[in-house]
Amino acid sequence: MNTKQLEYFLATAEQGSISGAAKILDVAQPAISLQLANLEHELKIKLFERNFRGVALTTAGEQFEEHARLILNQIDKAKLEIIGQQTQCKGKVVVGLSQSICNVLSFQLQTELEHRFPNVELAFRVGPSYKVENWFADQKIDIALCYNAELNKNAATTLPLLSEKLYLYISPRPKNPSYSELSLYGSIPFESLQDYELFMPDRRDALPMLLAAEADNLGIKLKTRNAFGQLMTTLHYISQGFGLAIYPSSATCHLETSKQIRAIKIIQPELKRDVYLRLSDHQRKNAAVAAVFELIRETTANAHADNSWRGTLLDTKYRHPSVVNIDSAVVG
């Protein structure tokens, strides 16, 4: 049973004929006849008596008419409530996030927001992780995607979003001779990274802090050079074959798809870091902020499902039923 069948049924009952219903609905008579036949077959009752004048409701048809009107009225009421919520949901929402996360989420997030909540204005404030944390602490942003679960823990809603995997990235055609052997690797032990110079963002950022801690655990020292200020500039330099860097797939998904850059899996240990979605306490009851918060959760699940953002999805509310693991494909 569907709403189209109910609409055709009620129109036919009101007009007293299929031809009359077809006229007001602007639908071909055979289409209405087919839907009514399907409805009667599903209900296993006869809804209309046919005669030379048209149709008339049976006793069962009259009883069903009341239910059909009630069902359609409830559907219309639900639509009006949802549309009303979208109309009332308005205002500006500022989201703070890193360049890599912005790369994988911003387009779909903006597109979905414009479609579902056209009166909500979304602004991205993009920067290194320590700046995102400062903006959040100073209430300069409403929502933060960050790597620190403890920042103002009692003053915000904190949701573990995703444990993202980190990879060593290299050009498929490296121009630096020292990368020739590396270009054939599918995986590399973390300890072996000390033999190569790596682009590294500001040491206050979450990524170099994680790598430095892991290097200390293994008693090694990584050779680093300053990354360019913009993520895309650094990645362009790497794609041309002149450097190496460690990033999550969120930073590189567009370049991996076009085969401009290649991921090498880091092992012994495998590197991961948790991403948290944080909602400022003073914005907890703001409908627009709440809408964006939920859309970020949904968009993250979508990015994880299509392997743009690889790792373990910690927030499973919008998880897709099955996600293909293509690690072997991207590192092989």
Rank of each mutant, 00 (worst) to 15 (best):
E112P: 01
M209E: 15
V93C: 01
I238W: 00
L222W: 02
K140R: 12
L43H: 04
Q260D: 07
I246D: 05
Q15M: 15
P269I: 01
F48W: 00
I101P: 11
K165Y: 12
Q86D: 02
Y318P: 08
I83R: 13
L314F: 04
A11R: 01
H236W: 05
F48G: 06
R273P: 03
S106W: 01
A251N: 08
E14Y: 02
A68H: 02
L43C: 00
F48L: 02
E164R: 13
Q240T: 12
C146Y: 06
K131M: 14
G61R: 09
L80M: 12
L182A: 09
N73I: 01
D315Y: 11
F9A: 10
R203L: 11
E133C: 03
D274Q: 15
L295H: 06
L313N: 00
K221Y: 11
E164K: 12
S106E: 11
K165M: 08
L161F: 02
E214V: 14
P128E: 04
H282K: 14
V55T: 01
K153T: 09
I261D: 06
V292A: 10
I83G: 08
S250K: 02
A288K: 01
D315R: 04
F52M: 12
I82V: 12
Y8N: 11
L105S: 07
S100M: 03
T87M: 11
N286D: 11
D76E: 07
A31C: 03
L198H: 09
Q240W: 07
Q85I: 11
E256H: 07
N51C: 02
K4C: 03
V275R: 10
N38V: 04
A37N: 13
H236E: 13
I143C: 00
N217C: 12
T233F: 13
Y318Q: 05
F293S: 00
L207E: 00
R204Y: 09
V55S: 04
Y167K: 02
G84E: 00
P321I: 08
L162F: 08
F48R: 07
